[in-house]
Design a protein around this nucleic acid. Structure first.
Length: 1057
RNA sequence: GCCCAGGUGGCGGAAUUGGUAUACGCACAACACUUAAAAUGUUGCGCCGCAAGGCAUGCGGGUUCGAGCCCCGCCCUGGGCACCA
C-alpha cells in the first residue's frame, strides 16, 4: 500500500474530470434533471476566501449525490463581475476594468478547479461579457416596452463618497451599505423599475416555493403588505386660507385600524404632503414653513433619532371626522412618512406616536377601545396610558361591543356607503432605482431624441360597443392631446348598439386620411375596428394602442350576441404587425370580463408590448382622465435601441472617475453619447447611466440553461428542460416513486422528492447567503415573473427551494477581515492538508446554517480520518478471495446480505445505518453528522481484522461527495470499472440495518437503574419480567409493589412505585 | 420596540423530535511503539464523591411515569426590520 498523497491524487483526478468532460451535461429528456445553484461569485482581486467554499462545497456534495442517484445534474458556475470594487481598482491603477476582470476570473477559476467542484465549466458565464450583457440589455428593453421602466426626477439616496445613487435596499442605517458614508438626498433623474406593480405577485409566489423560513419571512416583511382602508377627511372651509379651491378635495388617510376611527381626534400629515401649503392659515404660515424647512434639512438618521420626542406644527386648518363629525385640527409632523400610504394619518389615543404627540402639544384625545383588563382600562380612560392593542369598542355608536376585528369589517361598509372610505391594500415595497452614475455596468440601451419627443401625430380614437366619441375618457384625452399640439379625430361609429365592424371601418376610412403619422387608440370592441382597419392598410401607421381589447367575443360573465355577430373574428396578425410600427396593449389587470389570456395571445401574435395596469374606473370607463393611458401615449423622447443594435457595448474611456456633477464617466465620451435616433434618424443622445450590480445577477440562472445562444437569452426548449423538466407533483408516495430516475434507488429518491419538490418549477435547489435574501432574491424573482408574464420563461417562480449557509468566522470568532489579520487562505489549507480534507472539514465544522469559527485543529482531525480510510486498504480481503465472495452481478444490497457478510455482522448493520444516515443528512444539509457517522463506521472497520471489498466500496461511495478525489482513487483500486462519480448510490436495506441485540433501559421513578441486553424481537411480557426480576431493580423497588410499568418498544421500561 | 434563529463538557458540536444527555471531532492525560521526538495505536476524559450515590442542557415555575425537546414567565447572544399608520 502506497502512502496517502493527496497532492498527486487530487491533481490526477481534476485532470481526468476536465479531460473527460465528466461533469458537462446535455439536455436528456430520458433522465430527470436536477438543477443545483450557488450564488456566482464576484471575482475580486484578492481571490477566493475561505467563506466561498462553504456554499460551493455544500451544493457540490448534493450535486454529486444526486448524480449517483441517477439525476441529470446541472451544477453551473459563473462570475458576477460588474461593480464598484473593480471600478475603484481601475480608478486607482488606471487599468481598464475589463482587463482586471479577466485576470481575476482566471485566478478564481484556478482556485475553484483546485477545490474539485463538479461544475459544468463549459457553461460558465461572465456578466461583463458583451454576449451576456446583450441579453441583460434586452430584458431591460422588454421591461421598458411594457411600461415597467420609467425615468423619474426624485430624491434619491446619494453616496457622496462613491458618487452614485443607491437603491433603498443599499442604504443601511442611513449609510451607504458599501462604504458606510452617511447617505444624502439628491434630486436626480433616475431610471426606475416598477417592482411595486409586482408586489402582490411576489408575495403570492412565496406560497408556492420552499424557502427556509427566515428567507420567506424577510421577503414578506420587505414587501410589507397591509390590509386596511383609505378614509376621507373633509377639510372645513375657512375664509382665512388663500387657496380655498384646491381644498375641495378631502385629505385621504390610510389606516389598518379602522376600529379606532371613533377616537380619531386630530389629523397629522407629512411635511412633504402636497397640501401642506394650502392648509396653512395666514397665522400659521410662518411656523409651518419653518418646520417644513427644518425637516427637509435633516437626514433620515436625524429624523429617526428623535423617535420618542415627537415634533410638529399646527396648520391652522380643521377637518371633519367622518364617523363622529368631530372637528379635528390638522397638524404636520415628521414622524408621518410621505412615501407610505397617503402621507397622512388620523391620530388617536390608540397609537403610541399619536399619544406622545397629543401629550406634548395638549391635543384632544378620547378612547374607544376597551382592554379586557379593568385596571388597565381605568388608566387608559384617564389618559395615563396608551392602549395600542385590540379590544372591545366603546363610545362608537352602533358598533359598541364589537371586537376590533369585527368592527373593522362593519365600519368599512358603513363609511363606504357614505362615500367616505374604500378598502385598500398597501405595500412597503418601493420601486427600484435602476440607474448608476458609473462606468463599470451595463449601458442602458436607450437614446434621447428631441425630435421624436416633439413630434406631432394624428390621433384617431375608436370607441367600443354601445359607446360614443363623447363617452368615457375620450373627451378629456382629446382635449389633452390637442393641447399638446396633436390633431385628434374621434368619430362616432355607426350603429354602436348593433355594430358591424366592417361598416365601422369603412366609415372611419371615409372620414379621415391615414398615414405614417397616425396613432390609433381603440378601446374595447373598438380594438376589432382598429385591427381590421390596420390589417387592410397599404401603408404603415406610427402606433396602435389597444385599451382593454379582445380578439374573440368570449366573456367571462355572459354572452353578448351583438358583439359576436358584429364581425367574423378573423384577424391576420402578421399584417397588423407589419402595418403598425408599434403596438401597445393597455390592460385593466382586474377586469374579470375579458380573460387575461386574450391579452397574452395578442402580445405573442403581434409582438405587442402590454401594460397591465389599474385604471381609475374598471375597463377604463372613467369619464375624466385615465392617467395610465396618458402615460402610454406620453412622448418622453426615450427611444429604445432596436434588438439588432444590441449589445450596446461599453466604450473605452480615459478616466473612470465619476464626475462631481453626478454624471457617469460615459457622459464625457461625446463620440459615444452623440448618435442618431433609431426611430427618426435625427440626432440623439445616449443614456449615460449604467445598470446596477443587481441586473446581471437577476437572470443568470436562466442563461446557464443555454449559455451560448446568440438568438435568444435562452431557448424555451432548454429552459423547459432545466427549469421545468419532467415536472413532478407527487400527491402520494406511490406516485412520487414512479418518477424515480433509475430502478433500485426508489426509496431514497422518492422520499426526497416527496419532501422537497412539492410545487411549481424552477431551479431545484438554490443556496446562498442570508445577505441576499431580500434584494437579490426579490429582484431575480421579479425579473423571472416578468419574463414569465411575457411568455419567454416556463415557470412563474425561478427557485423551487432556497437554503442559506452560515458565515465562517476567523479563529478568534470575529468576522474575517484583513485588518483583523484573522483571514484563512484556502490555498494554504489545501497545500497543507489536501482538498479532500479541506472539503470534508468544511462539512464537518458545524451546522451548515450557523456561523462557525474556523479551527485548523479540526481540519487536522478530518485529515486523520481520511488517513484511516486510506489505511483500511490493508484490511480489505484479497482479490481472489473477493472474487469468490462477491460476484459482480449482484447488487450491492444483496452482496452485503450474502454469506460473506453474515446477517449479524456488526459492520453490515452499521454500514446500512450509515447509508441511511448519510443519505438523509445530505438532503437535510446536516453534513457534520453525516461525516461523524462515516467516522464512526471507519473506526469500527479499523477494529476488524478483515472487511469485505463490497463493504469498503460502499464506504468509499458514501464518502465520495465530500472527498471525491481520494474516493475516485480508491474506487479505481477496489471499485467497479466505471467512474465513481456516476456509480449508483448505495441502497439502504432496513432489514440489514436492524440490530439483533438491543439495550433496554430500566427506569425506577424516572431514574435509570439498569440496562438489559436482550434480543431485538423480545416480547413485552418477557422484557417486563426480566426487568422486574433484575437484582438491581429489586433493590430499588425495596419490596414495594410497582404502581405502573410502562414499556416503550425497543427503548426502555419505566417503573413507578 | 417588533419579527426570526439560538443558549448543552475545557472547545466545535450530537441527541431518531417526549424515552440511556454529552455521538463525532478537537484539546488534555496515561500507556504502547521509538535511543529520542514526530507520526500512529490503545485507554481515560461533564461536575461533586473513596464509594454507594447525588447533581448537571441560560434562569424560575408547570405538564408528564419520563422534559435539552412541550406550556407559562424571565435573562442573555446572533441576525433582520425599524416612526410603515
Amino acid at each position: 500500500m502506497k502512502k496517502y498523497d493527496p497532492k498527486s491524487i487530487e491533481k490526477k483526478w481534476q485532470k481526468y474530470w476536465e479531460k473527460n468532460k465528466t461533469f458537462e451535461v446535455k439536455e436528456d429528456t430520458k433522465k430527470q434533471k436536477f438543477y443545483s445553484l450557488i450564488e456566482f461569485p464576484y471575482p475580486s482581486g484578492v481571490g477566493l476566501h475561505v467563506g466561498h467554499p462553504r456554499p460551493f462545497t455544500a451544493m457540490d456534495v448534493i450535486s454529486r449525490k444526486k448524480r449517483m442517484e441517477g439525476f441529470n445534474v446541472l451544477y453551473p458556475i459563473g462570475f458576477d463581475a460588474f461593480g464598484l470594487p473593480t471600478e475603484n481598482f481601475a480608478i486607482k491603477t488606471g487599468r481598464p476594468p475589463a482587463e482586471v476582470t479577466a485576470e481575476n476570473i482566471a485566478n478564481f477559476t484556478r482556485q475553484l478547479k483546485a477545490l474539485g467542484y463538479s461544475f459544468d465549466w463549459s457553461r460558465a458565464v461572465d456578466t461583463t461579457d458583451p454576449t451576456y450583457y446583450k441579453w441583460t440589455q434586452w430584458i431591460f428593453l422588454q421591461l421598458y416596452k411594457h411600461g415597467l421602466a420609467y425615468k423619474k426626477n426624485q430624491p434619491v439616496n446619494w453616496c457622496p463618497k462613491d458618487k452614485t445613487g443607491l437603491a433603498n435596499e443599499e442604504v443601511v442605517d442611513g449609510c451607504c451599505e458599501r462604504c458606510g458614508t452617511p447617505v444624502e438626498k439628491r434630486d436626480k433623474e433616475q431610471w426606475m423599475l416598477a417592482i411595486t406593480k409586482y408586489a402582490d405577485k411576489l408575495l403570492d409566489g412565496l406560497k408556492e416555493v420552499n424557502y427556509i423560513t427566515p428567507a420567506r419571512v424577510q421577503q414578506e416583511n420587505w414587501i410589507g403588505r397591509s390590509e386596511g382602508a383609505v378614509v376621507r377627511f373633509t377639510v372645513i372651509p375657512s375664509e382665512a386660507r388663500a387657496d380655498e379651491e384646491s381644498l375641495s378635495q378631502p385629505i385621504e388617510v390610510f389606516t389598518t385600524r379602522l376600529d379606532t376611527i371613533f377616537s380619531g381626534t386630530f389629523l397629522v400629515i407629512a411635511p412633504e404632503h402636497p397640501l401642506v401649503k394650502q392648509l396653512a392659515t395666514p397665522e400659521q404660515k410662518k411656523a409651518v414653513e419653518k418646520y417644513v424647512q427644518e425637516t427637509a434639512q435633516k437626514t433620515d438618521i436625524e429624523r429617526t433619532a428623535e423617535e420618542k420626542d415627537k415634533s410638529g406644527v399646527f396648520t391652522g386648518s380643521y377637518a371633519l371626522n367622518p364617523a363622529t363629525g368631530d372637528k379635528m385640527p390638522i397638524w404636520i409632523a415628521d414622524f408621518v412618512l410621505a412615501q407610505y400610504g397617503t402621507g397622512a394619518v388620523f391620530a388617536d389615543a390608540h397609537d403610541e406616536r399619536d399619544f406622545a404627540m397629543a401629550k406634548k402639544y395638549s391635543l384632544p384625545l378620547k378612547v374607544s377601545i376597551r382592554p379586557a383588563d379593568d385596571a388597565l382600562w381605568e388608566r387608559v380612560q384617564k389618559l395615563e396610558e396608551c392602549f395600542p392593542s385590540e379590544g372591545t369598542l366603546v363610545n362608537s355608536g352602533q358598533f359598541d361591543g364589537l371586537t376590533s376585528a369585527e368592527a373593522r369589517e362593519k365600519i368599512l361598509p358603513w363609511l363606504e356607503q357614505k362615500g367616505m372610505a374604500r378598502r385598500q391594500i398597501n405595500f412597503k415595497l418601493r420601486d427600484w432605482v435602476f440607474s448608476r452614475q458609473r462606468y463599470w455596468g451595463e449601458p442602458i440601451p436607450l437614446v434621447k431624441c428631441e425630435n421624436c419627443r416633439k413630434k406631432k401625430y394624428n390621433y384617431i380614437l375608436l370607441h367600443g360597443f354601445k359607446g360614443s366619441s363623447q363617452g368615457i375618457f375620450f373627451p378629456r384625452l382629446k382635449e389633452e392631446l390637442e393641447k399638446q399640439g396633436h390633431t385628434v379625430f374621434a368619430p362616432d361609429l355607426p350603429n354602436p348598439m348593433q355594430p358591424n365592424i366592417e361598416e365601422q371601418v369603412k366609415s372611419v376610412l371615409e372620414k379621415t386620411e391615414i398615414n405614417e403619422n397616425t396613432v390609433i387608440v381603440a378601446t374595447s370592441l373598438g380594438g376589432a375596428v382598429a385591427m381590421n382597419l390596420v390589417e387592410h392598410l397599404k401603408k404603415t401607421i406610427a402606433k396602435l394602442v389597444l385599451v382593454d381589447c379582445f380578439i374573440r367575443p368570449e366573456f367571462a360573465d355572459r354572452a353578448r350576441p351583438e358583439v359576436e355577430q358584429s364581425f367574423n373574428w378573423q384577424f391576420n396578425f402578421e399584417k397588423i404587425k407589419k402595418n403598425a410600427k408599434e403596438i401597445v396593449l393597455v390592460v385593466d389587470k382586474n377586469f374579470p370580463v375579458i380573460p387575461e389570456n386574450q391579452a397574452r395571445e395578442m402580445m405573442k401574435a403581434m409582438h405587442a408590448s402590454a401594460q397591465f395596469v389599474e385604471p381609475v374606473a374598471q375597463h377604463f370607463t372613467n369619464d375624466g382622465q385615465e392617467p395610465e393611458i396618458l402615460k402610454a401615449l406620453e412622448q418622453t423622447g426615450w427611444i429604445p435601441l432596436p434588438e439588432s443594435e444590441l449589445p450596446l457595448k461599453l466604450p473605452k474611456v480615459e478616466k473612470y472617475e465619476p464626475t462631481d456633477t453626478g454624471e457617469s464617466p460615459l457622459s464625457a465620451m461625446s463620440d459615444w453619447v452623440n448618435t442618431t435616433c433609431p426611430r427618426c434618424g435625427g440626432p440623439a443622445k445616449r443614456e449615460t447611466d449604467t445598470m446596477p450590480n443587481w441586473a446581471g445577477s437577476s437572470w443568470y440562472f436562466l442563461r446557464y440553461a443555454d449559455p451560448n445562444n446568440d438568438k435568444e437569452f435562452a431557448s424555451m426548449e432548454k429552459l423547459r428542460y432545466w427549469m421545468d423538466g419532467n415536472p413532478v407533483t407527487p400527491t402520494t408516495k406511490e406516485e412520487s416513486l414512479a418518477h424515480s430516475p433509475t430502478d433500485g434507488q426508489r426509496s431514497l429518491v422518492g422520499a426526497s422528492l416527496a419532501r422537497d419538490d412539492k410545487r411549481g418549477g424552477g431551479v431545484d435547489w438554490y443556496n446562498g447567503g442570508m445577505e441576499h435574501t431580500v434584494l437579490h432574491l426579490l429582484y431575480s424573482r421579479f425579473w423571472n415573473q416578468f419574463l414569465y408574464d411575457i411568455g419567454v420563461v416556463p415557470t412563474r417562480e425561478p427557485y423551487k427551494k432556497r437554503t442559506s449557509h452560515g458565515m465562517i468566522l476567523g479563529p478568534d470568532g470575529e468576522k474575517m477581515s484583513k485588518s483583523r489579520g484573522n483571514v484563512i487562505n484556502p490555498d494554504e489549507m489545501i497545500e497543507q492538508f489536501g482538498t479532500d480534507a479541506f472539503r470534508a472539514y468544511i462539512g464537518f465544522m458545524g451546522p451548515f446554517d450557523q456561523a462557525v469559527k474556523w479551527d485548523t485543529n479540526g481540519l487536522v482531525g478530518v485529515r486523520r480520518f481520511l488517513d484511516r480510510v486510506w489505511s483500511l486498504q490493508e484490511r480489505v480481503i484479497a482479490s481472489e478471495e473477493r472474487a469468490k465472495q462477491s460476484p459482480r452481478q449482484e447488487s450491492k444490497g444483496e452482496i452485503a446480505a450474502s454469506p460473506s457478510a453474515p446477517r449479524n455482522d456488526k459492520i453490515t448493520t452499521l454500514l446500512h445505518q450509515t447509508i441511511k444516515k448519510v443519505s438523509d443528512d445530505i438532503e437535510a444539509m446536516h453534513f457534520n453528522t453525516a461525516i461523524a457517522k462515516l467516522m464512526e463506521l471507519t473506526n469500527e472497520m479499523m477494529k476488524e481484522e478483515k472487511i469485505s471489498n463490497i463493504q469498503y466500496q460502499i464506504l468509499i461511495q458514501l464518502l465520495s461527495p465530500f472527498a471525491p478525489h481520494i474516493a475516485e482513487e480508491l474506487w479505481e483500486l477496489y471499485g467497479d470499472k466505471e467512474i465513481l462519480a456516476y456509480s449508483p448510490w448505495p441502497k439502504f436495506d432496513p432489514e440489514l440495518a436492524k440490530e439483533s441485540m438491543i439495550t433496554i433501559v430500566v427506569q425506577v421513578n424516572g431514574k435509570v437503574r439498569e440496562q438489559l441486553e436482550v434480543p431485538a424481537d423480545i416480547s413485552e411480557d418477557e422484557i417486563k419480567n426480566q426487568a422486574l426480576a433484575s437484582e438491581k431493580i429489586q433493590k430499588w423497588l425495596d419490596g414495594k409493589e410497582p404502581k405502573k410499568v410502562i414499556y416503550v418498544r425497543g427503548k426502555l421500561i419505566s417503573i413507578v412505585v
